[in-house]
Amino acid sequence: MLCPPSALGDRWSRRFADPVTAFASGWMRIRGRIRQAGVELPLVISDHADWPELIATVTKTGADDVWVTHGRDDALVYELARRGRKARALSLVGFEDEGE
């Protein structure tokens, strides 16, 4: 079972005999972040992508409806609409873009 360290204390996760703490982020390339997060299985997966790869990935998924959660949501929604895809920006409270 893969779960964040904070979830290990709840009643549901205690059912599993030997859970593995995991975290997926581009930050998992940095050992200090791994120790700080207290994870056993760091998954190096970034949520940042180059524009051509982002558009190609959306196209390959075949998704009819795309929800954009952060970054230049207006630009991506516009581009996907231009390509005939339904897309909209999804506002997540408390998850403002850092450093932008």
Rank of each mutant, 00 (worst) to 15 (best):
F16K: 02
F16D: 05
D73W: 02
S6G: 02
I34H: 08
Y78K: 15
V68R: 04
I45P: 03
R29L: 10
A56F: 01
R15P: 03
E53N: 12
G94D: 12
V58I: 09
A49V: 08
F95I: 06
W27Q: 01
S13D: 01
I34P: 03
A63S: 12
D50I: 04
L92F: 00
L80P: 04
W67E: 07
L92I: 13
A7T: 08
E96H: 06
I55W: 07
S46V: 03
V68S: 06
G38E: 12
T57L: 15
D74Y: 12
R11M: 06
W67Q: 10
P19W: 02
D64P: 07
Y78A: 15
R72V: 01
C3W: 08
T61I: 04
T69K: 06
L92S: 01
W12P: 00
Y78N: 09
T59R: 11
G9E: 11
E98D: 04
L8T: 09
I30T: 09
R11T: 14
I34A: 09
A24G: 08
S91Y: 05
D10W: 13
P19A: 07
R35A: 11
V93D: 14
L2H: 09
R15G: 12
R14E: 11
E96P: 04
P42N: 06
V68H: 05
R83W: 03
A63R: 11
R29M: 08
P19S: 08
Q36P: 01
L2W: 13
R31L: 09
T61A: 02
E96W: 03
G71C: 06
H70F: 03
T69D: 04
A89N: 01
F23E: 04
R88L: 05
R14Y: 00
V58R: 01
A81Y: 07
